[in-house]
Design a binder for these strands. Sequence first.
RNA 1: GCGGGCGUGGCGGAACUGGCAGACGCGACGGACUUAGGAUCCGUUGGGUUUCCCGUGGAGGUUCAAAUCCUCUCGCCCGCACCA
Length: 824
Amino acid sequence: MRKEVNFVSHYDFKTIEPKWQKRWEEQKLYKTYEDDKKPKYYCLEMFPYPSGKLHMGHVRNYSIGDVIARFKRMRGYNVLHPMGWDAFGLPAENAAIKHGIHPAKWTWENIANMRKQLKQLGISYDWDREIATCHPGYYKWTQWFFLKLYERGLAYRKKSFVNWCPSCATVLANEQVVDGRCERCGAEVSKKNLEQWFFKITEYADELLEDLKKLPGWPEKVKVMQENWIGRSEGVEVYFTAEKTGKRIPVFTTRPDTIFGVSYLVMAPEHPMVDELVAGTPHEKKVKEFQRKMEKLNEITRTSTETEKEGVFTGAYAINPVNNEKVPIWIANYVLLDYGTGAVMGVPAHDQRDFEFAKKYGLPIKVVINPQQGELRSESMTQAYVEEGILVNSGMFDGMNSKEAIKAIASFMEEKGFGKRTVNYKLRDWLISRQRYWGAPIPIIYCDKCGIVPVPEDQLPVMLPHNVEFNPKGTSPLLECEEFLNTTCPECGGPARRETDTMDTFMCSSWYFYRFTDPRNEEKPFDEEKLRYWMPVDQYIGGVEHAILHLMYSRFFNKVMRDAGLVHVDEPFTNLLTQGMVLKDGAKMSKSLGNIVSPEEIIEKYGADTARLFILFASPPEKDLEWSDQGVEGCHRFLQRVWRLVEELLPRMQDPAADEKVDREVRRLVHKTIKKVTDDIEERFNFNTAISAIMEMVNGLNSYKERPVSGKVIKEALESLLLLLAPFAPHITEELWERMGYQKSIHLMSWPEADREAMADDEVEIVIQVNGKLRGKLMMPADVTEEEMKEAALKHEKVLSLIEGKNVVKVITVPKKLVNIVVK
RNA sequence: GCGGGCGUGGCGGAACUGGCAGACGCGACGGACUUAGGAUCCGUUGGGUUUCCCGUGGAGGUUCAAAUCCUCUCGCCCGCACCA
């Protein structure tokens, strides 16, 4: 009899999805304005590099963001959810060299394609705020920010040994070198002595470290990574004296309590003082040889823990200021020039590295710290004693414990001028010059008369010239572009040259989240009021690969702009969600492995709603996700079931009041689901369990199809179902919403509220245990008392047989849940 | 070596403050409808010697009760790594 009624339409996603995408766009459904009547919510996903096509990682990233944005909107927030393009960068230039396409054309075409794909996914962006970092209207302000840094003395030029990627033909920041290789292309990075532009990120090292504490909404992992990268360590710079030249040799130590145990000094092979110490001595030849050998080694092998310590004696000596002892000066591979002072004191008894070195070269081992119990003897030591302890052989400091001694000796040295307390960081200044064309030109002019001259603000942007020659060697075409190169000095008006290097693209992405608050402003990078309304970003979502790079640069940038009075927040991103990777067959999708699943195909075959639903259902967002074609089909089937369920039940929305008990059951299911889905999204971003709860609801409603349910209750159930599903599957829910008879978009509706009363159970299931083991279950009224539970449990058939002839020691009850009878 | 995370059916994963282990989905098996089923619907599905016993990487412990807490241990992933 139902059969004829069951005639329903087919879930035709291929018609539905474009239909709604078009309507949303026409109606500007997701356009955002400042509105003081609503709490604001800034939901941001890391903008992509326009490589040409979306990959599954993007789909995951933007699906997560869209659920959050749509959910928050329905919860009454004024949500800013923008998208843009991190559009400068090398691939565009490589395409130019390889295929003869201009980087601009290549980039804009890719953007057009990816924008189309994002729209096909139905992500709720305010497209009127779209930005691209390669647009002069954007990079004008990137250059403006460079000038701000320059004015504040935070941008400077310096000659130093920098990382050079031969394949990318440009220098790189330290953060972009991973295991001695280029983070982008994997080529081995070498060192070049070049004059380059840097940002003084080290000036903010302490605050960048300290303010991590202000970020409880960030994953611990990311904070730890930044902490490691900043690498703060407190200690003392001790001034040794070179016996031969009388010059000061500062060394950095975190253990001044071991200063009396110094038996030698080690300098980095490249230390500038080495040459003068060995000049004209019999040691000169060997030292030079060693230096040459070190030069040839790449940094990874040179600094690996596995590499054996190696060094040579310079023939020179240094004087230890605290006891005037004369100690030999060595150079060795394990001392790095660019950390601390490039020289260290060797305390073999209390430092494992020094111990190994001293053993190898027969240098004396002198114990100056003893453990709380017992006494160390240098002859019998097999490793260094690096823990704290009690000082010995340390003159007036004997008997102190390490903690006291560290303070006392540091103060003593400061008093006597033997040294001073210092803080050292592993963090280096950010090298931002790139010898590439496709980037924002550094707004600097070099004049023979006036020197380095910043381009005046009113002359911004320094435009990238369009007509340039790309040469296959990969050198920047700007070097040969006369019309760009030649200019006049803004100060003296004489002939001058432009800086030909462009800026690291991480500079462009360090402020884009400001620009979204006021993307078309031509007078300023942003309007302060608008920025004040929207910033900080409430929820930032992206891959963990930017844990240090982009996320630390942006934090630095934000602090500078705050100090410049442009921004009011200490930290730009309040909450950070780092999504897991999308895997196929247990490995990251990659061309070389041939395990790529393209979003295009999935959308074509199943539609965007299915793609989104699967990617959110398969795994919680921060975990890796294993792609499964069958899983996708399962999600598609679920959406078909939703379609059928709604279509079948639509005609019954006018049904008269029916069985009150059944109504109550249906309403209980609906409201329990509302509660669960709300909590899962709001508190934990556990979209997978939220979706499974919706699936359970659909299964449940299906089972009520044959039963008498009031029309009112059916209507409430269907409405709730669609509202709960709307953030995940925006198209099908919108279509069904319309079919329910609503004119106004489901995405402008309020999120449903769980009704406590409707949720309340009539009956509860009581679990009965004997000695902690499950022995039975009982249905009891919801207002059952613990006493009643206990009584019923003790009368339970199964229980009686089990406790017969035994002693009931104790009965434990958990209200409305469980009775545990303990017998002996 | 240090730091962070993880380990649960055939698979992806649930189980929030200790209280029914395995929700939901996939797969598999059985059935219905059917010319057909790779569509759809219904049912079953941790293992076993099946009134019961065993099961959350392993071994102990705390507890009436442990995937969850503690100790040790094994394995995997990620980050840092001669940083003085």
